[in-house]
Amino acid sequence: MKRMIAIAAVAAFGAGGAYLFMSQNSTVQTPGTVQAASIVEVAQSDIAEMVMGAEDAPVTIVEYASFTCPHCATFHNGTFEQIKKNYVDTGKVRFVYREVYFDRFGLWASMVARCGGETRFFGIADMLYDQQRDWLGTGDPVQIADALRTIGRTAGMTSVQVNECMEDTAKAEALFGWYEANAQRDNIRATPSFVINGENYSNMDYAQFARVLDEKLAN
């Protein structure tokens, strides 16, 4: 399982490709060592929570995941489908997805997913996980930026819409600050990680998830 790092950087896309804003004195820190002054102060209401399921469901799962994390892709392409079918779609579980940014590519992918708004987010997230190896490719930033643009257009957005979202540096900074605040508050150090009715859990297979969810539902 990948260890999570808080990178002191904010990523955005320029018209000619991808670039990274970074302080010359920035350092790599774990969530436990990030100083309060380094966190961008972002009101929780400024960033939309991506949620599926009944608002009044008795159990809430908050998943912390990165679009560049292979374990997250495996979870979403397998275990999550069963959780959605048996718990979310039946009104038992409210599912909240919160992005984690290991790297600039994960932030870029998040910006593209959020570009489609709340109604398209999970559909684009599915595409990002299904095609993770393809759009990450060789790791070349320009190629990754182009691949993410293609995913955005495939999801029904115009090139202008996708580029406007990609070039929104203020949104990138806000998302990064929101991520850091979430990670510190919930003590998230790896992906995928889960907070189920306020309790932290590491990655599990479906059988383990079902046991935990059934216990929560019984209480």
Rank of each mutant, 00 (worst) to 15 (best):
V162A: 06
S159R: 07
D168R: 08
Y179P: 00
N163H: 05
F176M: 08
L175A: 01
L175P: 00
L148W: 03
E164I: 14
G156T: 05
G156K: 08
M166Q: 13
R153E: 14
D146C: 00
S159F: 04
G156P: 06
T154Q: 15
D168E: 09
A172M: 05
A183S: 10
A172N: 03
T150A: 09
I151D: 06
V162I: 11
C165A: 13
A172T: 08
Q184G: 10
R185W: 11
N163T: 11
M166Y: 12
T158W: 02
A147P: 02
I151H: 01
T169F: 12
N163V: 08
E173P: 02
G177K: 00
S159N: 10
A172S: 13
T158P: 01
A183M: 06
T169H: 03
S159W: 00
A181I: 14
A170S: 15
I151R: 00
G152E: 01
E167R: 14
F176G: 03
R149A: 14
I151A: 02
N182D: 15
A147M: 04
A174V: 12
G177E: 01
G177H: 00
Y179L: 01
C165P: 13
E167S: 12
L175R: 02
L148D: 07
A170G: 13
Y179D: 01
A181P: 14
A147H: 10
R149M: 11
A155E: 06
G152I: 03
L148S: 07
R185Q: 15
Q161T: 10
T158R: 05
E173H: 07
A181M: 15
D146N: 13
A183T: 10
L175M: 07
T154N: 14
V162K: 06
E164L: 15
G156L: 07
N182Q: 11
A170I: 15
G177Y: 00
Q161P: 05
G156S: 04
M157R: 08
V160Y: 12
N182K: 05
L175W: 05
G156C: 06
R153W: 06
G177F: 00
K171Q: 09
T169P: 00
V160W: 09
R149G: 15
Q184P: 02
F176Y: 08
